[in-house]
Every structure is written in structure tokens, then in C-alpha cells.
């Protein structure tokens, strides 16, 4: 066992990378849930984004195009969910599960020709002197654009929900869709837009996994990341800032357990591999045990079917 080989600065830097896919998916899902829709298909949209982004990046040789395609793919798949739940008024839990099941099969189907292929890498921005700062430079200023995009997105979503009028309308739709409808807001359209945004974010997160973090395509490679993203939204009590905290907590556990596995800690490998899931469950329990607090923040119309009678 060699715990001394674990460098805290490298650990912190890889934590940010490990947290990014989940951060992206969770921040998208936060907006969706704020509009009163529970989309359980995050896992399916992530894996679809992962393979669509991977395939396009490999075919065109341009990772940026891959990321765009992944966003489009995730959004397209999420709109299937949107139309089913918003227009055809199907059960959101069941439809979200369908999205995940379909996404896993669909991605495996497309991904057949891409196993073992190496994707083109996205160039890292050169932050010049910033990256040369000892420790901090390695931790904060040595990442690719998507990591920073994820952070920017958290700030943008926070500001959007808190300070802008469309953000207020989105929250109104999520809190009480009948009242919002009576005020003349287009509930279904707003929700469809939120769902598409969530799908695009999940797709981007998936593509980050397949193009940057791993970088490789393997069947079922998201391995529950989408579900953890859903758990993080609950953990965050539907607040953008705490989504970041949750994602970094998860990223920390994921990176630490990999490092501990490599260091040969005298703990079964399987226990370490299961630890991200166990920690997520534990965190969920702690949050939900805090009576009232978590429930107070949940959008009041979350998961309820909206049907305009007039």
C-alpha cells in the first residue's frame, strides 16, 4: 500500500474532471425539475449523448462538432419524453424509465463499430501564466473548455432562476401549473423547452465522458452516472450552487476510490467500486431525513400531469 503516491493537487484536478459529466447532467435536470417535470431518463440521454458525440467526433475528426451533436442528440431524445409526457400526458416516471431503457439499447446499437476506437481530443485552452501558479494552477487552470463551461452553466442557471423574468415564469410553472396557465403562460411549451435544455446538458455530459474523461466508447459506460445526477438534484434541494457541491462530492469519491484501488488499499476492490453509489445513497438519506427542509424546496407540481381543461 502506498498512500503517499496520491498527490492532493492532482487529486483535486481530476476531481473536477470526474465531476463534470454529472455536474452537466444534474444542472440540466435541475432546470427540468424546476419546471415541474421529473425526467428519470437522464441515464438514457447521457449514454445517447456519449455515443452520438463520440461517433460524430470520430467521423468528422472534430471534437467540438461531436459535443454539439451530443447536445442535439440528447435534446432530441428528451423531446420524445417531452411529447409523450406533455402532449400525450403519459406517466413521467414510466416514460423516463422508457427513455433510459431505449437509450441504453440505442447507444449500444450505434456504438457497435466504435468499440476500441480512439477519439480526437479537444485542445485545452492555454491560460498562460495562470496555469503556472503552483498547486492552484494545476488544480484550477489546467482543464479543457467543457469543465469551465460546466461551471459557467451553474452560475448562469443560478442567475437565470433567481434574477430573470423567464426564470421566474419557469419556477411558477413548476410550482403551480394551473395558476401559471390561468395567467396565460404556455405551460406545455415552457416545459418542452426546459426538457430540451435538460436533454442537451445530459447529452453534453455523456459526450464529455466518452470523449474526454475515459476517452473511449464502451457499452453502458455511463454506469449509473445519470441516476447519480438525479440524486444530486435531490441532494441540492433544487439549488444550483449545491448541485456543484454535490457533483464535486461525488467526483471526489469517484477519484479517491480509483486512487485507493491503484494504491492497493487493503479493502476489497468491489467495495471501493461500489462506494460512489453507497455514498450517494447515504447522502440522499441524510438530506431526506432532515424533515421538511428538502421537501419544502421541491417544486410543488413536480411529476404531476398538466391538462388544460379550457
Amino acid at each position: 500500500m502506498d498512500l503517499g503516491a496520491i498527490n492532493p493537487a492532482v487529486l483535486a484536478a481530476s476531481l473536477m474532471v470526474a465531476a463534470t459529466p454529472i455536474l452537466l447532467a444534474a444542472i440540466g435536470e435541475l432546470v427540468v425539475e424546476k419546471s415541474g417535470v421529473l425526467n428519470l431518463g437522464v441515464e438514457g440521454m447521457m449514454i445517447t449523448g456519449a455515443i452520438v458525440g463520440f461517433a460524430i467526433a470520430v467521423e468528422t475528426g472534430n471534437p467540438a462538432l461531436g459535443f454539439l451533436a451530443a447536445m442535439a442528440g440528447g435534446a432530441a431524445l428528451s423531446l420524445v419524453f417531452g411529447i409523450l409526457t406533455q402532449v400525450l400526458m403519459s406517466n413521467q416516471v414510466a416514460t423516463g424509465l422508457a427513455l433510459t431503457l431505449f437509450g441504453l439499447g440505442f447507444s449500444a446499437l450505434i456504438g457497435q463499430g466504435y468499440v476500441g476506437v480512439k477519439p480526437p481530443a479537444l485542445a485545452k485552452p492555454d491560460l498562460g501564466p495562470l496555469a503556472d501558479i503552483p498547486v492552484l494552477g494545476r488544480v484550477l487552470f489546467s482543464h479543457d473548455l467543457i469543465v469551465y463551461l460546466g461551471l459557467a452553466l451553474v452560475v448562469a442557471v443560478w442567475a437565470f432562476l433567481r434574477f430573470t423574468r423567464p426564470g421566474l415564469i419557469l419556477r411558477a410553472v413548476g410550482e403551480n401549473h394551473d395558476a401559471a396557465h390561468a395567467l396565460g403562460y404556455k405551460v406545455v411549451r415552457i416545459r418542452l423547452a426546459a426538457i430540451a435544455f435538460g436533454g442537451a446538458c445530459a447529452g453534453l455530459g455523456g459526450a464529455y465522458l466518452s470523449l474526454m474523461r475515459v476517452p473511449q466508447w464502451t457499452e453502458g459506460m455511463t454506469a449509473g452516472a445519470g441516476w447519480i445526477a438525479l440524486a444530486i438534484v435531490v441532494f441540492a434541494s433544487w439549488r444550483a450552487g449545491r448541485v456543484l457541491l454535490g457533483a464535486y462530492l461525488f467526483g471526489g469519491v469517484a477519484v479517491l476510490q480509483l486512487n485507493l484501488q491503484a494504491a492497493g488499499l487493503a479493502v476489497p476492490v468491489e467495495l471501493l467500486s461500489a462506494s460512489p453509489y453507497l455514498v450517494t445513497i447515504l447522502v440522499l438519506v441524510i438530506i431526506s431525513a432532515d424533515r421538511g427542509r428538502a421537501a419544502l424546496n421541491a417544486p410543488a407540481s413536480l411529476g404531476r400531469v398538466f391538462h388544460a381543461s379550457s
Binding site: L40, V93, A223, G224, W227, I228, L230, A231, V234, P268, E270, L271, S273, A274, Y277, L278, T280, I281, L284, V285, S288, A289, R291, A295
Partner: peptide
């Protein structure tokens, strides 16, 4: 039990436990 004791969402817990079970199986 987590649902009844702590009101934890059973959808997420039951699903996450699948991955834990797979690790138990591997072990």
C-alpha cells in the same frame, strides 16, 4: 426502510443498489 424511516426516494435508492449488487456479484 429508508423510505419509511427517512422518506428517501425509493426510485433512486433501489436503482443505485443495482450497481452495488453487481459489485457484490463480482466479489
Amino acid at each position: 426502510i429508508l423510505k419509511t424511516r427517512f422518506r428517501t426516494n425509493e426510485i433512486l435508492v433501489s436503482l443505485l443498489l443495482v450497481y452495488v449488487a453487481e459489485q457484490v456479484l463480482a466479489s
